[in-house]
Amino acid sequence: MKMPMGVTIHDAELLIQFRSPDTKEKAFTAIIKKYQEKLYWHIRRMVVDHEDANDVLQNVFIRVWNGLENFREDSQLYTWLYRIATNECLSFLDQQKRKSTLTLDESESGLSNKLIADKHFDPNKLEWKLQLAIQQLPEKQRLVFNLRYYDEMPYEEMSRVLDTSEGALKASYHHAVKKIEDYILNH
Rank of each mutant, 00 (worst) to 15 (best):
M3D: 10
A12H: 07
L14G: 02
L14C: 06
L15F: 03
L15E: 05
F18Y: 10
R19W: 06
P21M: 05
P21H: 05
E25D: 14
K26V: 11
A27W: 02
A27V: 03
F28H: 06
T29Y: 07
A30V: 00
A30H: 02
A30T: 10
I32S: 04
K33S: 15
K33P: 00
K34P: 02
Q36F: 10
K38W: 07
K38Q: 12
H42R: 07
D52S: 12
D55K: 05
V56A: 06
N59W: 05
V60A: 02
V60K: 01
R63I: 00
N66R: 14
F71M: 00
R72L: 12
W80P: 02
R83V: 04
R83E: 03
T86L: 04
E88H: 08
C89E: 00
L90M: 13
S91N: 12
S91W: 09
F92T: 07
L93H: 02
L93M: 14
Q96M: 13
L102M: 12
T103K: 07
S107L: 12
E108K: 14
G110N: 09
S112W: 06
K114A: 11
K114V: 07
H120T: 11
N124W: 07
K125W: 01
L126G: 03
K129S: 04
Q131W: 00
A133N: 01
Q136R: 15
L137G: 00
E139N: 12
V144R: 03
R148T: 11
Y149H: 14
Y150N: 11
E157A: 12
E157Y: 05
M158K: 05
V161R: 00
E166Q: 13
K170N: 02
A171I: 13
S172H: 09
H174L: 11
H175R: 15
H175T: 11
K178I: 12
I180E: 03
